[in-house]
């Protein structure tokens, strides 16, 4: 644990040190791209990373992305930063049912966590953004979130000296919208959750998780309960879309992926979210309608909310009280040790 923590700290700290060193450099000395190697925490598979070819990760770019991530100037009236909804101290989510944006306008969906975006390609609950970069650009313009225009954004950031310098160093250009998206995306790809008690358990460290959690894991992957049908793999998601019925009992339900694809089979489908750090991202479901992990288990135990398009994987489970507790205990073991690290890292960086 200590190794991982110090590793990441070292990487990020060195990234920002290099960044500021470069900012302090004389004009004549050409910027040297700092070598950057991403540390993949225990339990995550480095073969599965998704980094676009046109946006390689560099230390300077990540440092720039971090600065942008916390900068409210991304929004029209300079009150909403990325971190406003994706708050590092709240599991890179916001603890609200649905997102709150500029002027206090409410969105329609729950803020998803940012951890382990390194392993996913399509973004948003409905997968409409084909990359993190695309997702970032959309939300900057979203009238319920940041409400900004590209023109205004670029002009605002151009007026800030350290951004002008940083863009020259990172991209060799003026401030550009594409650069903003690439930098933020690169920063977000460093937000990784692994090395959870579960990862220690699965690599053979006995006693890493409780007996109850062990029983929960057995249930989790059992044919009978079969959570793993969708929450599969190292990141506990198949990156596919399912209708579990959440919100389908509303008068005007959110049709999810259908809104984007217009395929009837996509009605009410939302992306399977990662279960990494799941204890930190309540409330749950795309509409935040389920408050606690206990409620989530109860929700699936009931067989979701019946509707015409309900996934075949979602059916009444007839769990006993002990089984429900075991599943919750298991889910709790998926919270990475780096959650603590994030908390320290970001609460000290004003």
């Amino acid at each position: 644990m200590k190794d991982l923590k110090s590793n990441i700290i070292f990487e990020l700290v060195s990234a920002s040190v290099v960044f500021f060193l470069i900012l302090g450099c004389q004009k004549e000395s050409p910027p040297i791209p700092a070598k950057f190697s991403l540390v993949i925490p225990n339990g995550l598979d480095s073969l599965l990373v998704q980094i676009p070819e046109d946006n390689p990760m560099t230390a300077e770019k990540i440092a720039l992305g971090k600065a942008l991530f916390f900068d409210e100037r991304l929004s029209l009236d300079a009150t909403v930063s990325c971190a406003f909804c994706h708050n590092p101290l709240q599991g890179f989510a916001d603890g609200r049912e649905v997102a709150l944006g500029i002027y206090g306008l409410e969105g329609t969906r729950n803020t998803p966590t940012l951890v382990n975006r390194l392993f996913s390609r399509d973004q948003n609950w409905d997968g409409r953004a084909k990359s993190l970069e695309e997702q970032i650009l959309e939300h900057i313009q979203n009238p319920y979130e940041m409400r900004n225009t590209f023109e205004n954004l670029v002009n605002t950031l151009k007026a800030v000296e350290h951004y002008r310098k940083a863009f020259q160093i990172v991209f060799g250009t003026e401030v550009t919208v594409e650069g903003i998206a690439k930098a933020i995306a690169s920063f977000e790809r460093t937000l990784l959750s692994g090395s959870a008690p579960f990862d220690q358990f699965i690599t053979g460290e006995s006693g890493a998780i409780s007996k109850s959690a062990e029983r929960g894991f057995v249930l989790f992957k059992s044919k009978r309960v079969n959570c793993i049908a969708c929450h599969s793999g190292q990141n506990f998601t198949d990156e596919k879309y399912q209708n579990n019925g959440a919100g389908m009992d509303k008068q005007e339900p959110d049709w999810g992926r259908f809104v984007y694809t217009k395929n009837d089979t996509d009605k009410g489908k939302f992306k399977t979210p990662t279960l990494r750090d799941v204890t930190r991202t309540a409330p749950f479901m795309h509409d935040g309608s389920v408050r606690t992990l206990k409620d989530v288990v109860a929700f699936y135990n009931e067989g979701g909310i019946p509707n015409k398009y309900l996934s075949k994987h979602v059916k009444p489970l007839h769990l006993t009280e002990q089984e429900k507790t075991d599943l919750v205990e298991f889910l709790k073991t998926l919270t990475g040790r780096n959650a603590l690290f994030f908390t320290e890292q970001f609460s000290s960086s004003n």
Binding site: F70, N87, L89, Q90, S347
Partner: peptide, 9 residues
């Protein structure tokens, strides 16, 4: 209810 954002800023 959630002063964490203020803390991080």
């Amino acid at each position: 209810p959630n002063p964490q954002y203020v803390a991080s800023k």
